[in-house]
């Protein structure tokens, strides 16, 4: 999903502290917030935005292109289902720690309805100059500027850093798609790459991935068949070997999931994989050489070879943090 400034955005959970705070920030980015939902609080206004008790009620009065959820983990399923069942075709689930079985139900429903879910556990998406949906600093002009670089990122904090380096390279973003740090996601890296490949304003695609899971390897299979140049960064390549999900988890991904496997798959598919975030600026400046270049553009410093731990799969997952570090990936920071 790539939002336009004219798209009507619904905020579910708008009366909460975060919902209110980020609604204001989103508006600063040009986002057209047409309504909010808060069960039992219909009839109020928050910062000039009318509040409804249900998505159904809001949808009866407004044209809603996207709904963004500021709701607690155990309420996310019913809130997302409510949006889908009211006919909203794009749902952004920011919430972290949504039970996986809940989100799988939401995704099955979205699939049936041909709707798109971004997240969960995502910082959202930004289309500089148009709109920002979520909790990214779309209002910060040193980080987001209109341009032609499309970024897909599993992590919010790292994605922000990459966006900053794009702007420092004198360029801007056509879209930033934060897909989320959970292992089960509505929009995978491959899905996001497809969206950016179709987007006429996107000239270059940047993938900000990390160890764990096999989304980057899956995406590599797809990017081999597209024409737009792809630059990638994989976080966690130096992470020590850690816990993994057990045989069945490893079975599905095979031996994939380590930093090395991701870098190899992406490089083979023709992506330019950078070693440190700052290098993205160098690559963007010398973009003509991005694809099929034997000699990657030099960084301003003498860059040493990567210290990629041999097949290192992961840093372990903790309970309050279904980490996107480990084989059971997760949390976007």
């Amino acid at each position: 999903m790539i939002v336009k400034g004219t798209d009507g955005v619904l905020v579910q959970g708008i009366t909460g502290t975060q919902g209110q705070f980020w609604s204001e920030r989103m508006k600063e980015c040009g986002t057209r917030i047409v309504a909010g939902v808060s069960p039992g609080k219909g009839g109020r206004e928050v910062g000039g935005v009318p509040v409804y008790s249900s998505v159904h009620d809001a949808a009866a009065e407004h044209d809603i292109a996207v709904s963004v959820l500021f709701v607690p983990p155990l309420a996310a399923k019913s809130a997302a289902l409510e949006a889908l069942q009211a006919g909203v075709s794009n749902v952004v689930v920011l919430t972290e720690h949504v039970p996986y079985h809940d989100i799988m139900e939401v995704l099955a429903e979205a699939e049936d309805r041909g709707a798109r879910v971004l997240g969960p556990n995502t910082a959202g998406l930004v289309v500089p100059g148009e709109a920002s949906v979520g909790i990214m600093p779309g209002f910060a002009s040193n980080i987001f500027q209109p341009g032609s670089v499309g970024i897909v990122s599993r992590s919010g904090s790292l994605g922000t850093l990459m966006a900053l380096h794009v702007v420092r390279a004198g360029q801007g973003q056509s879209a930033f798609l934060g897909i989320g740090g959970d292992p089960i996601l509505g929009t995978t890296i491959t899905d996001a790459v497809r969206i950016l490949d179709r987007d006429p304003r996107t000239d270059v695609i940047v993938i900000v991935g990390e160890i764990g899971g096999s989304m980057e390897e899956d995406a590599a299979e797809h990017i081999a068949s597209i024409d737009k140049p792809v630059i990638a960064f994989i976080a966690g390549r130096s992470a020590p070997a850690g816990k993994r999900m057990g045989h069945a988890g490893a079975l599905v991904t095979g031996n994939r999931g380590s930093g090395r496997s991701k870098v190899e798959a992406l490089t083979e598919a023709g992506a330019h994989v950078v070693e440190v975030p700052t290098q993205i600026g160098d690559v963007l400046r010398g973009r003509a050489r991005v694809r099929g270049s034997d000699e990657p553009p030099r960084s301003r410093r003498d860059v040493r070879p990567a210290h990629d731990a041999e097949g290192a799969p992961a840093v372990p997952k903790t309970d309050n943090h279904p980490s996107h570090l480990g084989a059971p990936p997760a949390h976007s920071g």
Binding site: L158, G181, R237, A239, P277, H307, S332, G333
Partner: peptide
């Protein structure tokens, strides 16, 4: 000390990249 798992991992990677060794992962 960094914030967010992605950025923390990247910081460790960068320490390795510049020839150092990180003492911890802490998010």
């Amino acid at each position: 000390l960094a914030n967010g798992a992605g950025l923390t991992m990247t910081t460790l990677d960068s320490v390795a990249h510049y020839g150092g060794r990180a003492a911890n992962f802490l998010e």
